[in-house]
């Protein structure tokens, strides 16, 4: 029996959907298990009905999108929120921390803050393999878990040189692994797009980074993708 799947997008760059399409062959393998009932980016005939699984990308901006999210919640058995926008707020959530009145707009909301969310796939963009893993686990009735080690773990496996040791800022020590340390592999610092790992020592890392780049920049790089400390286990937050 195929399960029905819907893919929706709120305020975001739609990069996570493209990350899914970028690995089209694997995406295709999913069609053995799922029937895609709603996917505006990829198909014309979309249905407004009940779904087994709804994948939601992006953060909720404004009443319309919040209403839309609540509707999807009623229609779906399982909600999988994908990407840093849905998980942490994304780049657009910077405005939540600015003084009121600069924008005539309410703060943008993460998906778990609006509706009960069963699973979150973090990352900007997501790691497509992680999402497919999660979907198949749901299909077979298994519990899906995200890795809870720091990015540093994967970074060592990949034999990268430690950026912090060489005096450069990096958020690897507090960030949840699962991305195969893709940024550090390419020479860039980890900027925490996957959110904090369980029990992160953020204060300690701040103390290490501030002498390197100053207080202001430390604050900046910790907020690129939104609030890093957002809980990954949505049941804890409701």
């Amino acid at each position: 029996m195929k399960k029905s799947l819907a893919i929706f997008s709120l305020t975001s760059c739609e990069g996570c959907q493209f990350e899914m399409l970028n690995h089209y062959e694997t995406f295709n393998g999913l069609l053995k298990y799922f029937e895609i009932k709603n996917f505006r980016l990829g198909q014309e005939n979309n249905f407004d009905e009940n779904f087994d699984i709804a994948i939601i990308e992006g953060s909720a901006d404004g009443e319309e999108q919040i209403k839309f999210l609540k509707k999807i919640r009623k229609q779906s058995k399982v909600i999988v929120a994908i990407g840093a926008c849905a998980h942490l707020g994304g780049i657009q959530s910077e405005r939540n921390s600015l003084p009121q009145g600069i924008f005539h707009k309410k703060p943008t909301k993460i998906v778990p803050a609006v509706i009960k969310t069963e699973y979150i796939i973090p990352g900007c963009p997501i790691n497509h393999a992680e999402l497919y893993h999660c979907l198949l686990d749901i299909y077979w009735g298994k519990q899906f878990f995200l890795p809870d080690l720091a990015v540093c773990f994967e970074c060592r496996v990949n034999e990268n040189e430690c950026l912090i040791k060489s005096g450069k800022p990096c958020l690897g020590p507090i960030t949840r692994s699962g991305c195969n340390s893709v940024c550090v592999n390419a020479g860039e610092a980890c900027l925490g797009c996957r959110g904090a790992k369980p029990e992160p020592n953020i204060e300690k890392l701040k103390k290490i980074l501030e002498p390197m780049i100053g207080e202001k920049e430390t604050e900046n790089i910790m907020t690129i993708y939104g609030d890093l400390t957002n809980e990954i286990d949505p049941s804890a937050k409701k």
Binding site: F18, E19, C183, G187
Partner: peptide
């Protein structure tokens, strides 16, 4: 070249990081 297909990481002001 860029390290990742969506949102490449290696290309920065001043050149490439890897």
């Amino acid at each position: 070249v860029g390290g990742r297909a969506v949102h490449p990481v290696a290309s920065v002001p001043g050149g490439f990081k890897s």
